[in-house]
Amino acid sequence: MADALWYFARGSGVISLVLLTVVVALGIGARSGRTAFGLPRFAVNLLHRNAALLAVVFLVGHVVGLLFDPYAQLRVFDLVVPFAGNYRPVWQGFGTLAFDLVIAIVVTSLLRHRLGARTWRAVHWLAYLCWPIALLHGLGTGTDNGTAWLWSIAALCAATVLAAVAWRLTPSFTRYPHRADRQVNSRLLPAVAPTSGSTPTPAGAPSPHAGTSPHTGSPTPAGMPGVPEEAR
């Protein structure tokens, strides 16, 4: 029975790593705004979400299995606080860290509409931290490290994510690479310092003839007579 738990825990751990790899790749694919494998954009998006939920299922299996496993002696405490375990604390700590990050990313995604896009996106960026930690955990801990099949799976996962990230960094990543950036016009941002060099006016009320002239009908560029200048 104990052995069965141990195998189950190891197996589900590896499967969730593979699924997380697929999730990261699909997430990057969805971000590109392109269709993939003949699937429309919304399908890529749904696949990304469902693969993530499936990964969580296997991850929970992995963790629950280890909670009852006599070798690992995982405590509920270890699910939250990394690097405090009894069994290979450093490698297990990476697992805890990755688990916590996955939970944070999934929970914020489920509550996306309530949290707002900004918070959700900020937490979602942690995926780029979560995935390498999960990989490290898988390679370092457990009985399977050093086996050829685990190394092959890990190498394949790493290659997938690296390729996706490399694509993400190319200028032609999005479907409309020539689109202008949406960025707030700097002239609308609050001034750093108040304008102090303005025309001084005599104390009291402003004088209509001493201050700046309140019109805009300033002389126009040559060849364009009688039309107000745009620059002010």
Binding site: P214, H215, T216, G217, P225, G226, P228
Partner: peptide, 12 residues
């Protein structure tokens, strides 16, 4: 009204 362009005395 702010009147400008090809007028003799632009203003309000």
């Amino acid at each position: 009204a702010t009147i400008s362009g090809a007028v003799a005395s632009p203003g309000v």
